[in-house]
Amino acid sequence: MRAILSIVILLFSITAFSQEQRVEYEKVSNNLVKATYYFVNNSDIVQREGFFNSNNQLQDMWVSYDINGNKKVIAYYDKNKKVGVWTYFSKDKINFVTYKDNKLIGVEEKLLVVN
């Protein structure tokens, strides 16, 4: 009985890790390709989307979502380097993190107040 249980657990583990993430690519210009990544267990819900340049480097705006479709992060890249103001959303606050040439420049936090 113990051997059968071990085999079942092993097969379940292999199946769980063998799922591949669905990704769609769309050429939007000569220099940019839009990539859309979907959650593994929910292939219709977008996990993150953004752009790659012609050298396959992260470029321009990238947006990450939670499983409910709410934005978690808005990020910016220039040739794989973090740039500009990144926005991190959470339940009760928004953090603004500023980057320049992949270096952290500043952090600002805003609490969300619901009336």
Rank of each mutant, 00 (worst) to 15 (best):
I9E: 13
V23K: 12
A35K: 12
Y25C: 02
F12L: 15
D60F: 09
S29Y: 05
N56G: 00
N31P: 01
F17V: 15
V73N: 06
T36S: 11
V63S: 02
F51H: 09
W86A: 01
A75W: 01
F17H: 10
L11C: 10
D60L: 10
F39N: 03
A75C: 03
N30H: 05
V83A: 01
N42C: 09
V83N: 10
K72Q: 15
Y38H: 05
D60Q: 11
V33W: 01
N70M: 09
M61G: 01
K34N: 04
S64H: 08
Q19S: 04
Y65S: 08
Q59F: 00
N31A: 08
E24W: 03
Y77R: 03
G69V: 07
V63T: 13
K27Q: 12
T15E: 10
N53M: 07
Y38Q: 06
S18F: 13
I14K: 08
S64P: 03
A16D: 07
D44P: 00
F52N: 00
F52E: 00
N70R: 10
N41T: 14
D78V: 06
Q21R: 07
G50W: 10
V40T: 13
S54Y: 07
S29W: 02
N31Q: 10
G50P: 08
I7C: 11
R48C: 11
V23Q: 11
N41H: 13
A75R: 02
A16K: 08
K27D: 04
L32K: 04
Y25D: 05
N80T: 03
V85C: 09
N68M: 04
F51V: 04
F39V: 01
D66T: 14
S54N: 11
N41M: 12
K72Y: 03
I14C: 13
F12V: 15
N55S: 11
L11E: 04
V83W: 02
I14T: 15
L58H: 07
T36D: 06
I14S: 12
Q57T: 09
F17R: 08
W86Q: 01
V33I: 13
V28Y: 05
Q21W: 00
Y38F: 15
E49N: 14
E24V: 13
L10S: 14
Q57S: 12
K34G: 00
N31H: 07
V28T: 14
K81T: 10
K79N: 15
N41R: 12
E20P: 00
M61F: 05
L10A: 15
V28G: 03
N30C: 02
